[in-house]
């Protein structure tokens, strides 16, 4: 299976090189380097406070790294001359706490990027937004406002919001960590569909079942750096670092093996 997965991956779409980020005295990222290939699902795991979220935020420059470079295809995102808004429109971002726009209903949340960023005509934008809502199974919630949705529904709307922009890749920042356990499944299911459908994504998550099921590669981060990267089989069965195995055993004990199936 891993071999089969590897074979469907394309060329390198995202390159992260020696990323450093410091908040005050804390050096959160201490030189992170990796590559992401088209169609790849990369799951980033590791203890909290190791810079996983910061890494995602540095990729689309929500946090500006102190050092290091990031390329999306042949565009250097970190270059001062690069139009960051143009780059961000091609990179979806799904937040732990959803961050849906509270004053807009589900359909408007999904269409606003098409209208204001892509400057798409209203009709087309709404049609596209409806499609994406249907894709995450929320067609009938188009007119509901975020405050009227459950956590799982909110996260699915926010995934639809990212999908609508037709992104080259999507960054997921602990997308199920703020959800009640019984709502995690519906979100993971959508993400599994995306991964199997060939979407390129980086997922920061503690969902080991998800990682095992769909990750092409798993990155284990600790203390601001990448300790180990490999296929799920490599990491789960014979991790190179003792620390990785230790963490995996602990996290599996804690969270179980839910994979949304």
């Amino acid at each position: 299976m891993p071999a089969e997965r590897e074979s469907r991956l394309g060329d390198v779409i995202l390159r992260v090189e020696d990323l450093h980020k410091r908040y005050g005295k804390d050096e959160v990222l201490k030189g992170v380097t990796f590559e992401l290939r088209r169609g790849e699902t990369k799951v980033v795991i590791g203890p909290s406070g190791t810079g996983k979220s910061t890494l995602l935020r540095c990729i689309n420059q929500l946090s500006v790294p102190d050092k290091g470079r990031v390329w999306l295809e042949d565009v250097e995102i970190t270059h001062a001359r690069t139009n960051i808004n143009h780059v961000r429109a091609q990179i979806g971002f799904v937040f732990q706490d959803f961050n849906l726009f509270n004053h807009l209903n589900a359909l408007q949340n999904v269409s606003i990027g098409l209208l204001k960023v892509r400057k798409m005509p209203k009709e087309a934008a709404l049609a596209r937004a409806s499609e994406e809502l249907a894709r995450v199974g929320l067609a009938e919630k188009a007119c509901s406002y975020p405050a009227e949705l459950s956590g799982g529904q909110k996260q699915r709307v926010s995934i639809a919001r990212a999908l609508a922009m037709d992104p080259k890749l999507i960054l997921f920042d602990e997308p199920t960590s703020a959800l009640d356990p019984e709502l995690i499944g519906e979100v993971l299911e959508v993400m599994i569909q995306l991964a199997r459908g060939g979407m390129t994504m980086i997922v920061v998550s503690h969902e080991m079942g998800f990682a095992r099921a769909v990750a092409d590669r798993i990155i284990f981060m600790e203390g601001g750096g990448i300790l180990e990267e490999g296929t799920p089989a490599e990491l789960f069965t014979c991790p190179r670092c003792e620390r990785t195995g230790q963490f995996l055993r602990k996290i599996t004990e804690l969270y179980g093996e839910t994979d949304g199936q």
Partner: peptide
């Protein structure tokens, strides 16, 4: 919440667009 601005910026809105379409409609309410 600062997440509103982050979400708007992360989809490629300029700061001005984010303020106009996301922040102000909520703030004025």
């Amino acid at each position: 919440s600062s997440g509103q601005m982050q979400a708007a910026r992360s989809m490629g809105m300029t700061k001005t667009q984010a303020v106009r379409y996301v922040i102000l409609p909520q703030a004025l309410r």
